[in-house]
Computed example of a mutant assay.
Amino acid sequence: MTEEHNAKVEKSDDEWKQELTPEQYQVCRCGGTEPAFTGKYWDTKTPGKYLCAGCGSHLFDSATKYDSGSGWPSFWQPATNGAVTEKTDRSFGMVRTEIVCAKCESHLGHSFPDGPPPTGVRYCMNSASLNLIPSGDEK
């Protein structure tokens, strides 16, 4: 990969506010969470690629999406190694693993060790942080 392809996306808070919807901004830049069973992708079965709403990086594939029963889109692995980054989240009196986009550091959701084989990990993401590109619609 070229250095440009790996380059971090850095924008001012005002730029993020202009480019994202209010819900996307709250989730991606402020670490918010959409209510369970309300996001546009929680029960979507459309084949395709899930991209970061902030920068367009390819984060997840529909082939690794599954119904976790949680009410949020869940995946058992990212699209590629290095697509997402883990951070320790100590909010709300608990310790969780926050998942952010490796390129723009948009908050995506959290991971939990109760996912299906082969990874055993549940990447529980917010629909607001993702954009689905259906198979065949890639440019």
Rank of each mutant, 00 (worst) to 15 (best):
T2E: 14
E4K: 13
A7M: 10
A7Q: 14
D14E: 15
D14T: 14
W16N: 11
Q18H: 08
E19A: 11
E19T: 07
T21S: 14
Q26N: 15
Q26P: 01
C28P: 03
R29N: 02
C30R: 13
C30T: 15
G32M: 10
T33V: 10
P35M: 12
F37W: 15
T44L: 12
T46K: 07
G48N: 09
G48Y: 08
C52F: 02
A53F: 00
G54N: 08
H58S: 14
H58T: 15
F60I: 08
K65L: 05
S68F: 06
G69Q: 08
W72R: 11
P73C: 12
S74F: 01
P78L: 08
P78K: 07
P78F: 08
A79D: 07
T80C: 03
N81P: 10
N81Y: 11
N81S: 14
G82Q: 11
G82P: 04
A83R: 03
E86M: 09
T88Q: 13
R90Y: 07
M94D: 10
M94H: 04
T97P: 07
E98C: 08
E98T: 10
A102M: 06
K103L: 09
E105W: 02
H107G: 04
H107Y: 10
H110L: 00
H110W: 01
F112C: 06
P113V: 04
D114Q: 07
P117F: 03
P117W: 03
P118C: 11
V121H: 01
Y123R: 00
Y123K: 00
Y123H: 06
S129C: 11
P134F: 02
S135P: 02
D137C: 04
K139I: 11
